[in-house]
Structure formats: C-alpha cells, structure tokens
Design a protein around this nucleic acid. Structure first.
Length: 214
DNA sequence: CGGAAGATCCACT
DNA sequence: GTGGATCTTCCGA
C-alpha cells in the first residue's frame, strides 16, 4: 500500500492531538543526549505549537552552571525527581523558562528549551507575546523567555508531566546529526570550567535560534 | 533578615 | 553595544 499523503491541516491536527507523544524513556538518559534529541521535537500547548530548534543541557550536581548543582532547594526540587517532568523557573523578575527533567532521580539533570519555530497557532503566539509591533521573523519564540511567553507557559506547569496533559512534547521531523551545531551555554560565565562546556545545541542556520548564534 | 545575583529581553545610542 | 526593568531565590550573618 502506498504511503498516504495528508494535508497540512491534517498534519497540524495530528501534532496538536499529541498522538505521537514521546515515551517516558526518552527522558531517562543523560541531559546531553536528551538535549540533542529534543531538537526537531514539537512543543504543544493547547492549539499552539512550536518546533524546538535550540536547547541547553544542564547536568545537575556536577555542573556548576546548573541551578541544581548544590543539591535540591525548594525551587529545583522537581529536577531531582523522575524524568519527563517540566521544571519551570522565574528569572530576572519577569521571564519564565521551561526545562525537561532528565536522567535518574537524584541527578538534577534538565534540558532548557531555548527556542522554537511556530508550527501552529502563530497568531495566538503573537498575541501572547504582546509586542507592539510584530517581532522580526524568527523572534516570535527565539529565546527561552520568548518561547514560554509565546506558548503561555508559566509556574503553573512546574512539575507537570510532558508526556501527557495540555503541555507536552511530541515527535517531529528528525534532525540529521550534520545539522546540529554545538557551543557553550548562554549566560553562565560565573560557572568556572563548566562555562565552556559545549552543551548548547541548535539547528544550524535556523532563523529562530536566539542570539548569539552558535 | 538583608543583599546580591540571576539559564533574559527590550529600547535606546 | 549598553543599561534598565523587575522580583524570586539563595546564601551568609
């Protein structure tokens, strides 16, 4: 039987339905592995969806750049729990950032979802962003704070599972290894040796990756 | 209990 | 390229 062609709207409907959710095992690996494999996945919230194009791995207790590096606190508690949950934190007095918890309980590993390209609900994303003028192409969700704002992610999702519920990560178009760019993480200059670790991953040349580009 | 810093974003020069 | 916004979190006293 020939492969069926489906319409764009059917494809979007399928994505939004979350019918190809990532299994929980997906998250039960090192943050570095999960980060790399998060590229190309679709983050869905209600009728809005974005394709993940940039991420960072945070290794946990042995990674001075990680929030969790000194052990659990009230804020980072969820990163020490089972993988596949959301770790959402508030930063600089105004932005939310979304992570996926990775690895085994007790590690404190997580993957920061840093940027996405609109897949569905682009008008809603613009409205969520509340910019006076439409942002430049690629600026709709091109940063961790922007991604959360565009997809309306906030503290209420901290600790939620990403393999079910209204906010979830689903399978998308695979990203070939040759298309992945790696570099040091953003904004972690305080982290000593860990500041230089190449744990930032992005789809090379993608317009929606945050600045500075890798 | 005070203070400093922060896994950022935006406007302005 | 620089600085301001804005407030939670965490550490040290």
């Amino acid at each position: 039987m020939a492969a069926a062609r489906i319409s764009i709207s059917d494809a979007i409907a399928q994505i939004l339905s979350g019918s190809v959710l990532l299994a929980r095992d997906f998250y039960a690996r090192t943050a570095t592995e999960v980060a790399r494999d998060c590229l190309g996945k679709i983050l869905v919230h209600g009728s809005v969806a974005g394709r993940i194009v940039e991420v960072e791995a945070y290794l946990g207790v042995n990674d001075r750049a990680a929030h969790s590096w000194r052990g659990p606190t009230n804020r980072t508690r969820v990163t020490f729990g089972p993988p596949g949950h959301a770790y959402v934190y508030f930063i600089y007095g105004m932005h939310w950032c979304l992570n996926a918890v990775t690895g085994d309980p007790g590690e404190g590993g997580a993957v920061l979802l840093r940027a996405g390209a609109p897949v569905a609900g682009e008008e809603a994303m613009r409205a969520n962003r509340r910019r006076p003028a439409p942002p430049r192409p690629g600026d709709l969700a091109g940063g961790p704070g922007k991604l959360c704002q565009a997809l309306a992610v906030d503290r209420s999702f901290d600790g939620c599972r990403l393999d079910e519920g209204s906010l979830r990560l689903t399978v998308g178009e695979p990203v070939p290894p040759g298309a992945v760019a790696a570099g040091p993480r953003i904004g972690v200059a305080y982290a000593g040796e860990a500041a230089a670790w190449p744990l930032r991953f992005a789809i090379g040349g993608c317009l929606h990756v945050s600045r500075p580009r890798i």
